[in-house]
């Protein structure tokens, strides 16, 4: 590794210095190197260095929490692409979606992926909740992380629901009409909640911009914050592992 004076290839030395400045440790050839790599890498640091073997068995976790997070990242990336083409206006939104479907290169695939990943995330988050329940993993000291998980489930549903309106087609506007009509039934606050959510009495421009802002900024930020706390607590409260 260390350059021998005089004979070293300066290009090779430069490349090695750059590489070494980014990755402090080599490939995880031994547990010790692997542990040091995990400790010094920001992204790997989301995990503890060591966990019980039984806690990460695939037949135990079914990868559901990880897959939910992966889908969230995938939705953020595909959503970012969609935002380049989408204008939240009742006059333009529908045509923007048509353009994505038929004009923009790979626009249809990105939009399809965003849609199916969104349905997928609702399912994986539900299944993750079910698996945590069946394994009793919500029991002390993890009570509050279960509460955060419940909030994450609600955030996921609201994210999906707010995105439902954006294509501004018949499916979108009537699903949101039916959905927000349910809010009306709450005593006293019901009609006000619906008015606040829609920015009016009907699903129109006011509702579209509100749902858009909730969908692309507010709810993802809330979800991200809850996720950070959720993951942090998974580490701090310890892993449950085999029954």
């Amino acid at each position: 590794m260390s350059a021998t004076p005089g004979q070293a290839n300066p290009v090779r030395a430069f490349v090695e210095q750059v590489w070494g400045s980014i990755f402090r440790h080599g490939l995880p050839s031994t547990d010790k190197v692997a542990a040091r790599t995990a400790l010094t890498n920001f992204f790997l640091h989301i995990h503890p260095v060591r966990v019980k073997r039984s806690a990460i068995r695939v037949s135990y976790t079914l990868c559901l929490g990880g897959l939910s997070f992966f889908l969230f990242i995938l939705l953020t990336i595909t959503g970012l692409f969609l935002m380049f083409y989408y204008i939240p206006s009742v006059d333009q939104a529908y045509q923007n979606i048509k353009d994505l479907q038929f004009v923009a290169v790979f626009g249809d695939i990105i939009r399809n992926m965003h849609r199916w990943a969104a349905h997928g995330m609702v399912i994986t988050v539900w299944l993750h909740m079910a698996r945590v329940f069946y394994q009793g993993a919500y029991k002390p000291p993890r009570e509050f992380n279960w509460v955060i998980g419940t909030l994450l489930l609600l955030t996921t549903l609201l994210l999906s629901f707010s995105g439902y309106l954006l294509p501004w087609d018949q499916l979108a506007i009537w699903a949101i009409t039916v959905g927000t009509n349910m809010a009306k039934y709450a005593p006293i606050v019901g009609p006000y909640t619906r008015y606040l959510l829609l920015g009016g009495n009907q699903v129109a421009q006011g509702a579209l911009i509100r749902f858009y802002v909730l969908h692309v900024i507010a709810l993802p930020l809330i979800g991200f914050l809850l996720m950070v706390v959720h993951f942090w607590r998974v580490r701090k409260d310890g892993f449950t592992g085999g029954l």
Partner: peptide, 29 residues
């Protein structure tokens, strides 16, 4: 997801129209 997205298009109906109520009108699943 890539395989599904290549095969199956996300639904897109006619442009939103408050005058025409689809029958049945359903909430998201």
């Amino acid at each position: 997801l890539m395989a599904v997205s290549i095969q199956v298009n996300a639904p897109l109906l006619q442009k939103a129209n408050t005058a025409i109520t689809p029958n049945p009108a359903k909430a998201p699943w």
